Amino acid sequence: MTSVYDFSARDIDGNERPLAEWRGRTLLIVNVASKCGFTPQYEGLEALWREHRDRGVTVLGFPCDQFGHQEPGDEAEIRSFCSTRYDVSFPMFAKIEVNGEVAHPLYKWLKHEGKGILGSEAIKWNFTKFLIGPDGQVRKRYAPTDTPAKIARDLPAS
């Protein structure tokens, strides 16, 4: 059986990182963008990360420029924006594609395992979120409009 731990991705600093690094933790995987109407969710994602990381929760951000050219910068620009504007400290990755033939393998798997409304696999917009259980399996998919505060209710209590 495939799990999130079978994948790796290049982080925002260019290092390949196996997701097995977070084995046993609850993950919230989000495709993010710097110039999106949902960009202020970075604040909520960072708050969720800071509040829940000691309870085994990790937020992972995957910049994507497939929706309205809302992530035009390179990794250095993205890192600078996230750091200076939202004080992001959760792990960030290099820009990827989430839809189409060259979608990152992680996202191909996430979309298959956590289908959206009416069984759709496509990511519709930035800030689509996937909650992954400590077993590495998709527990829930959230729409871009679902705020980090709403998602916090689905996180482990201890």
Rank of each mutant, 00 (worst) to 15 (best):
E75N: 15
Q66H: 04
F67K: 02
P134K: 09
S3K: 09
S83Y: 11
M1R: 01
L110M: 09
W22Y: 15
Q70L: 02
Q137D: 06
G114P: 08
T128E: 01
G56W: 00
R50W: 00
R85H: 13
L155E: 13
Q41D: 06
L28V: 13
L28H: 06
S34T: 12
F62E: 08
Q137K: 15
I117A: 13
W22H: 09
N31T: 11
G68A: 07
L118A: 14
D74T: 13
A149K: 13
I132V: 08
G116E: 07
Y142E: 12
R79G: 11
E101D: 09
T39L: 06
L28Y: 06
D6Y: 07
K95H: 02
A103C: 02
R85N: 14
G100E: 04
Q66K: 12
N31R: 08
D6L: 03
T128H: 03
E113Q: 15
Q137E: 10
P72N: 13
E113N: 12
E21G: 09
E77N: 05
F7Q: 02
Q41I: 00
R85L: 05
S83W: 10
G37A: 12
A157V: 10
E21T: 14
P91A: 01
E97S: 13
P105S: 02
S80K: 15
P134V: 01
S8F: 11
C82F: 12
A20I: 06
G136W: 14
C64K: 03
G56M: 01
P156S: 00
I29G: 03
H52C: 01
P40T: 07
L110W: 12
R23G: 06
A143M: 12
R17K: 15
E21N: 11
D6P: 03
M92G: 04
Y5G: 08
A143V: 10
L60E: 00
S34G: 05
I12N: 13
I151P: 13
A20S: 15
K108V: 11
N31I: 12
L48G: 01
V4S: 10
R17G: 09
K140W: 08
V30G: 04
A9S: 15
